[in-house]
């Protein structure tokens, strides 16, 4: 018994355009990530992730969700962890 999705997969369904959109949507909606600001680009069999997250673990999870959503693609995790510096000078308004 197959556990594959029952819907018919039309030709072109896995065009990079749609696959990138699915990965971006998964990053926003998967409870492991809930990341809305990650850019996803696919070139050939390479998937590129760009953006910022708050810590190393969240950076790792972004790649994990992308790999689960687009198996077979090589994921390049270019997401960075936000570096938070000391508060700077005040601005007089």
């Amino acid at each position: 018994m197959s556990h594959e999705a029952p819907h018919h997969v039309a030709p072109g369904h896995d065009a990079p355009h749609y696959l990138a959109a699915r990965v971006q949507r998964a990053l926003a909606e998967d409870e492991r990530t809930y990341e809305l600001g990650i850019r996803v680009d696919i070139r050939g069999d390479q998937l590129f992730l760009r953006g910022q997250v708050e810590c190393d673990e969240r950076r790792r999870l972004v790649a994990a969700v992308a790999e689960d959503t687009a198996p077979g693609l090589r994921v390049h995790n270019e997401v960075t962890v936000v570096e938070v510096r000391e508060p700077g000078e005040e601005e007089a308004l």
């Binding site: 600001g37 938070v84 510096r85 000391e86 508060p87 700077g88 601005e91």
Partner: peptide, 15 residues
Amino acid sequence: ALPVLRRAYAVYSLS
């Protein structure tokens, strides 16, 4: 937004 500020907080002085 923290990713914009990249510092713990901004301070604005109103006068």
